[in-house]
Design a protein around this nucleic acid. Sequence first.
RNA 1: GCACCCGUAGCUCAAUUGGAUAGAGCAUCAGACUUCGGAUCUGAGGGUUGCAGGUUCAAGUCCUGCCGGGUGUGCCA
Length: 576
Amino acid sequence: MSELHRHLRTVARTALETLGLTAEQADAGLRLEPPKNKDHGDVALGAFQLAKAAGKAPPAFAAELAQRIPADDVIASATAAGPFVNFKFRRSALARDVVTAIAQSQAPYGPAAANGQTVCLDFSSPNIAKPFHIGHMRSTVIGNSLRRIHRHLGATVHGINHLGDWGMPFAKMMTAYMHWGNEQELAKAPMRYMFELYKRYSNEVKTNPGLDDEAARHFQALESGQDNQERRMWQFLRDESLKAFQGPYDRLGVTFDHITGESFFEDKMAAAMARVTAAGVLEKSEGAEIVDLKAQGIKAPCLLRKSDGTTLYHTRDLAAVFYREATFHPTRILYVVGAEQKLHFDQLKAVLQKMNEPIAAAVEHVPFGLVLSKTADGNWEKFASRAGNAVFLDEILDEAVAKVRQIIRDKNPDLPDADRIAEQVGVSAIVFNDLKNSRIKDVKFDWDSMLNFDGETGPYVQYACARLASILRKAEAPVPTPEQVDWTCLEDAERVLLTMLEFGTAVQRAADQSEPSHVTAHAIALAGEIHSYLRDHRVLDAEPPVRAARLLLVDAARRVLTTGLFLLGIPAPERM
RNA sequence: GCACCCGUAGCUCAAUUGGAUAGAGCAUCAGACUUCGGAUCUGAGGGUUGCAGGUUCAAGUCCUGCCGGGUGUGCCA
């Protein structure tokens, strides 16, 4: 909360107490929000709850409340409008409070002090026997952003890449490699080569179902824990895959705190199963071991051991929960995994609840929508790697980068280091697009709109940053300090200031709802406001006091935009 | 069949979780000191928020029933 809001709350609480409300009632009803219509004021208070607590009609109560809030050196006015009380800050106080906080990197504009939360963030988690394509990007960039957001807010964050390096998919890849694999071919282009193997297996298994049985035998052999051919093959393929993934991760600027795949829990599953058994919730059914969840409202039981004795996805996730609980003591465990796996995580949580494990409350699925591609007749359909039409992430990024490179050639031919900038801007365009809308919405992947860099896009926000940086460069002097600035010179910047004031709310909401799009939306809004401001307000040729104040404003906007982009995992180039 | 998700302007999406006159971008049209960076800005047109009920002082938001699209649904992950 900003100083402005804190002051407003204090004054309002005092006024409410003189109107006969208790401190608790005042706090509960004191919901200060930006009004929908900017003309109403800077902050709005709907007096419905408060009026109810006071036993009065909302409009009458709002009028009384407004009357008891005097103007002071921060509050310019409090006026009642029907059941609302609208507040306006003094412009100079608004400027001083917001810009000073930004200049000094105070929270929320800079990193906050520890907030006592520990967040385990399970994201990206590709199946390392499959190609890393556009579909894998969503979990990766959403998780990467959430990791930065929580860290910014003062949480201890464990970003975990829960690699799919165990189980049947991996056994199938192993089987394919044993039949047709060639080490030299693999070394040339590991990702693509594995994809070829994957496709070949998928094709051949149609006419030769025995392949799946073979894969199952290999998995049993692998899970036996003995040092055998399967284990060596597993180690080899895992190492190669990890090397191959590093490329996309580097380009996207993604890092992890732990790379512990499913295989990491190999030796922890027996204890997990023992714990489930001890809780008395494990049953035998049709040769398998299950937890019945009907009492928890889920019809499908959770399978923890197959009739052939091997374990499942659920078994490993359960072991992972226990491990994380013991190792990290998390307050939240977030799984950034596609919406199609909702049932899986509902079951996981339900099993923990049935076991009376308190950690169940921390388990939270963070689902997201599919990536759809446009068909010839204008409809949207799922990207299907099975059909062999997987689009490799690299190809998409390359295409975007090439487009940016061309725009630079057209508009800014003298830009130094153009290739590096094109990489930054092009990759960001794709990432930004993925984080722009609510997670749960499907991402419509359409080349034309993807490569249109006008409007609400990554390049739009980066362009604003570059423009601001350019002005600061041309000032050829250090940015003024807050002490040097006459705040009355920024009274015309209210739209920019009020937008920057909202930054903390946007970040907090993003963390609470696991929804990076709130940060994206804020960055777009601020970029728009500063662009508009610069149209009518010259900086460099203004009178000295005005120039100094505006320079500091420009620097503040640049900092907030840069931080916002950082929280999305996107760089802010000084030139582009 | 059952469960869950989505449905808002021609298209893609917002709407601070129940609050004031539902807002942006794209596309279309009309404009902007010969640019402190035009990847920008200003403006215009464009809406029965899928349909029908209900709860409430107040519903795009909550409840019920439909319609349309999607995802999932015991030995994959």
